[in-house]
Computed example of a mutant assay.
Amino acid sequence: MEVMQIDTEFVTLGQLLKMTNAISSGGMAKWFLEENAVYVNGEEERRRGKKIYDGDVVNIPNAGRFKISSSVNGQSDVH
């Protein structure tokens, strides 16, 4: 399993597909999810806007299995 580092609170499934090179452009996400079974934490997911958070595990056909790791510490900008 590969660790995928993100620097935000979450990414969408469509963004993750592009980050992993499963698709070459964001516009391909809808087609890819219609044609391929992608699993988020063991559950099949077809929504390209599904939010993927720190600790989630995503299995993408022909791209691999990825554990999401966020570098965001959950700290607020409010002091």
Rank of each mutant, 00 (worst) to 15 (best):
E34N: 15
K50F: 06
Q75V: 12
Y53M: 10
G49M: 02
L17H: 02
I23M: 05
V3L: 06
M19D: 05
I68R: 04
I60S: 01
I68N: 03
V38M: 01
G42R: 09
V40Y: 04
N41P: 13
M19Y: 03
E44D: 15
F32M: 07
K51E: 11
R65L: 08
N62C: 08
D54T: 11
D77T: 15
M28T: 08
G74C: 08
V57F: 06
V72D: 13
M28I: 07
V72R: 12
R46Y: 15
L16K: 00
Y53D: 00
G26L: 08
T12E: 14
V72Y: 09
S69W: 13
G27R: 07
T12W: 15
H79E: 11
A63W: 05
S70C: 04
S69E: 10
N62Q: 09
A37H: 14
T12Y: 13
I68W: 04
G26E: 09
F10G: 00
A63D: 09
N62E: 12
V40A: 03
L33W: 07
N36A: 01
F32D: 00
T8M: 10
L17S: 05
E35W: 07
A22K: 06
A22P: 07
I52R: 01
D54M: 11
F10D: 03
M4S: 06
F10P: 04
I6R: 05
V3S: 08
V38C: 10
D7G: 11
V78S: 05
E44R: 14
I68V: 08
V38A: 13
K50W: 13
S24E: 08
E34K: 14
V72I: 08
F66Q: 02
F32P: 00
R65K: 12
V58L: 12
D77F: 12
I6M: 04
E45W: 04
E44I: 14
V72H: 09
D56N: 08
G49Y: 00
S70V: 02
S24F: 14
V58F: 09
V78P: 07
G26C: 09
V58D: 00
F66Y: 10
E44L: 11
S71N: 06
V3G: 06
E45K: 05
